[in-house]
Nucleic acid binder design. Structure first.
Length: 554
DNA sequence: TCTGCTGGCACGTTTGAAAAGG
DNA sequence: ACCTTTTCAAACGTGCCAGCAG
């Protein structure tokens, strides 16, 4: 008997979640010799622009402590590449669908004792809507307004570098949905749009809490993980790849067993080719089955992006692989999205970071996290109209941070920047820019206002100004910029780092517990981060240069 | 008519609980 | 009584398809 979507979790389920989220021992903390993922997101500094050294950053801290030492290797990169070459599609459903291949990374270079938060967001890769025509993806118009931006925070967060490096970090339980009012905290996407997942690593050390001047983070982007969201598969090749590689789809395996199964279902003696398959095959008969790189919208680039904010506040991004691949996404449109304003957490406690973990059915070395989302608010209209967001708590225990009143001090960034925006409510959207970015970001931090445990759609929701100027911002050519630091929030409650009990970290809004300092801080950080992302310029990343996009308040 | 979305379905995997055995 | 192994069923993930809506 299947559980209703909104049914509360049983203890069994919670236990199950626990086992899934536990990490696995024994994973090497350093890439194996000859590791194939030499360019898989490894934050090799200086690759961008042909430099071999980190872009200058005054007062760099101890290299052992700096976040640019962190290297991230995409797990199953070859599989990702297979999908990418065919044009990865990810099913989105109302109830939420996992990604396959799932997003798993191996992280090295962390300070073993420093705490980090790992999280993923999925941003529009461009501002087009696509259609599958002639066996390839083609632009079908302008993208629809972005869905509320949500973030998936790895449930182990925060955890020490040793923890992250010990095992594969899996975001397997991340789910995608097209339900604008999704109450489960899944990442909301638009169908037939192209997206780019991004991994953020945020330093959350006890001596370097979020919101402090020393907050450091980096962003890793693996272009091969970009995908087009669909409600049903368009490319038969993708379907076959999924069936072949996803154990849950084993039922469809066989020598083109999908057709055989159709025949079986229809009590026919001979295989019956389904409509969709037939259509695809017909198309394939006169077209190239495999999308060519130049026509495949998913072939934007094959570089991994690293975006650093040095602990002294300097931000920079690096492309970490071959530079001959230029990004295709050079538009500058900004997309609105939501500011994460709470997270969803299925399980609260009983997770021990250092417990031996069980093997995942998908990957013997995977660490499967449970759902742990930061969630952005719905569009303003939705907030006003949708009671589901206002009062009801998702069964998965939405972690809306009532907040401690912590603010992030607004700071000015680059000289060229316009005046800092007005204080932003936590109810505001993050501005999730299309994935363009290989440029300097401007980290603007803005006052953070906590939201009530039960989000009531505060009417003040100024859209981030970037949205107003979609596609209108000319790329600049300014030099690499140094960001201002994240300023400590005045009056912010920031408990000692040791006071980060997971129970509090996972405090659900329904329990009306005060949020974890870490999560609050993460929230703030992400908020500011997302805000900064809204200003990514569209300069090709390989240049190592960038500018701040023009934007105005209001 | 076409395209995209939804819900139900069958099939398979995973996993915890219960049962069985030592 | 305790521990280990085996069995079982529920929960869940998956792609497919018919039907529906715009």
């Amino acid at each position: 008997m299947r559980r209703a979507n909104i049914a509360p979790l049983s203890p069994k389920e919670m236990l199950q979640e626990k086992s899934l989220s536990e990490t696995e021992e024994g994973f090497p903390t350093a890439p194996a010799p000859g590791h194939a993922d030499t360019s898989a997101g490894s934050p090799v500094l200086g690759v961008a622009g042909g430099s071999s050294t980190p872009l200058s950053s005054p007062q760099l801290p101890d290299p052992e402590q700096t976040i640019e030492n962190i290297k991230v290797y995409l797990h199953e990169k070859e599989l990702w590449k297979k999908f990418h070459e065919a044009g990865t599609e990810m099913i989105i459903t109302k109830a939420g669908r996992r990604m396959f291949p799932s997003y798993k990374v191996k992280v090295t270079g962390m300070n073993p004792k420093t705490k980090y938060i790992l999280l993923i967001d999925i941003v529009p890769a461009d501002d087009h809507r696509y259609k599958f025509c002639d066996n390839k993806w083609m632009v079908a118009g302008k993208a629809e307004p972005a869905m509320p931006g949500r973030l998936y925070v790895h449930p182990d967060s925060p955890a020490t570098g040793a923890h992250w490096m010990r095992q594969l970090v899996s975001f397997q339980k991340l789910k995608l949905t097209n339900n604008h009012l999704d109450p489960f905290g899944h990442i909301i996407l638009n169908s037939m749009h192209k997206y780019q997942p991004r991994l953020h690593i945020v330093k959350a050390d006890e001596n370097n809490a979020f919101g402090s001047k020393n907050t450091a983070f980096c962003t890793h982007v693996f272009p091969e993980t970009s995908f087009i969201s669909v409600t049903s598969y368009q490319n038969h090749k993708i379907t076959q790849l999924k069936i072949e590689n996803n154990p849950f789809a084993k039922g469809f395996r066989g020598s083109d067993d999908s057709d055989l199964r159709v025949a079986r279902l229809q009590s026919k003696e001979y295989p019956v080719i389904s409509k969709s398959i037939m259509r695809q095959r017909l198309v394939s008969s006169h077209g190239q089955l495999s999308a060519k790189p130049d026509v495949n919208p998913l072939h934007g680039n094959h570089q991994s992006l690293q975006h650093y904010q040095y602990e002294n506040g300097a931000h920079m991004q690096f492309a970490a692989s071959d530079t001959q691949d230029l990004p295709l996404n050079t538009f500058t449109a900004q997309r609105d999205s939501g500011l994460f304003y709470h997270c969803l957490k299925r399980r609260e406690s009983a997770r021990h970071l250092d417990l031996p973990c069980k093997r995942s059915y998908l990957d013997a070395s995977s660490s499967v996290g449970d759902d742990h989302y930061f969630r952005s608010p719905p569009p303003y209209e939705q907030q006003m109209l949708s009671p589901s967001y206002c009062g009801e708590v998702a069964p998965r225990e939405a972690c809306m941070y009532s907040g401690s009143g912590a603010d992030i001090a607004a700071v000015s960034a680059v000289d060229d920047l316009p005046p800092p925006p007005p204080p932003l409510s936590c109810n505001m959207w993050t501005s999730v820019a299309p994935y363009t970015g290989y440029s300097v970001q401007t980290m603007e931090t803005v006052p953070y206002q906590p939201f009530p445990p039960h989000f009531t759609a505060a009417p003040m929701m100024p859209r981030l100004p970037a949205m107003a100027g979609q596609g209108s911002q000319p790329p600049g050519n300014g030099p690499f910029s140094v960001y201002n630091q994240l300023g400590p929030a005045p009056g912010r409650e920031r408990g000692p780092a040791s006071s980060f009990p997971r129970e509090r970290v996972h405090a659900a809004v329904c329990e009306r517990k005060p949020p974890s300092p870490h999560l609050n801080a993460a929230n703030e950080f992400l908020y500011s981060q997302s805000f900064s992302l809204s200003r990514e310029s569209s300069l090709p990343y390989h240049s190592g240069m960038g500018t701040v996009e023009n934007w105005t308040d209001g």
